[in-house]
Computed example of a mutant assay.
Amino acid sequence: MVLGIGGSFQYGIQVSVIASPEEHVQSFVNYTWLWRYDAPVTDSSNKLIWSFIVAVLSLGAWAGAIHSGSLPVTYGR
């Protein structure tokens, strides 16, 4: 069974990098929501926003990896 980059790599990133600041990021989301809308965010909405942040992080890492060769050549280091 071959998991490749979509399996064990994503699990390792989730466990080591993304899971550690979860409480702080969710607290920041709740604080920002409270500041903007004068009401606390519901737990389900907070989890939904956290899920979106985790998904975007993976997409951003993918886009950065794809363009890491051409951007330094074009714009310099």
Rank of each mutant, 00 (worst) to 15 (best):
A61K: 05
M1G: 07
V54F: 00
I53N: 02
F52E: 09
E23T: 15
V29N: 06
Q26M: 14
R77C: 09
G69K: 05
G4W: 01
R36D: 09
I66V: 14
F52R: 11
N46I: 05
Y37T: 01
V56I: 11
I53S: 11
W35Q: 14
A39R: 15
Y75R: 03
G76I: 00
Q10I: 09
R77I: 12
D43Y: 02
R77G: 06
M1L: 07
W50T: 02
A63D: 07
S58D: 08
S27K: 14
G6F: 03
R36K: 13
F52N: 12
E22T: 11
V41E: 03
T74C: 08
G6P: 00
P40L: 05
V17Y: 08
Q14W: 10
V2L: 10
L59W: 04
Y75Q: 08
A63G: 06
T74W: 10
G7L: 01
I49C: 08
E23R: 15
T42Y: 05
S45E: 14
L48S: 13
D38C: 11
Y37E: 10
I49P: 01
P40N: 02
E23A: 15
G76E: 08
H24E: 13
N30Q: 14
I66G: 03
D38G: 07
V17G: 02
F52G: 08
V2C: 12
S68G: 05
G12A: 12
T74Y: 10
A39L: 15
S51D: 12
L57I: 13
S51C: 09
S20V: 12
L59G: 07
S20C: 09
S58L: 05
M1P: 01
Y75V: 06
L59M: 07
Y37G: 04
N46Q: 15
W50L: 04
R36Y: 10
W50A: 02
Y31M: 09
L57C: 13
I5H: 05
L71K: 05
K47M: 10
L71C: 03
W50V: 00
G69F: 04
E23C: 04
G7N: 02
S51H: 11
G7W: 00
G69C: 09
K47P: 00
A61R: 04
I13C: 04
G7K: 02
V41I: 15
L48M: 15
A63S: 10
G7A: 04
T32Y: 01
I66S: 00
A63Y: 07
V2E: 14
S70V: 14
T74G: 04
S58P: 01
T32N: 07
N46K: 12
I49W: 05
K47G: 00
T42I: 02
F9V: 15
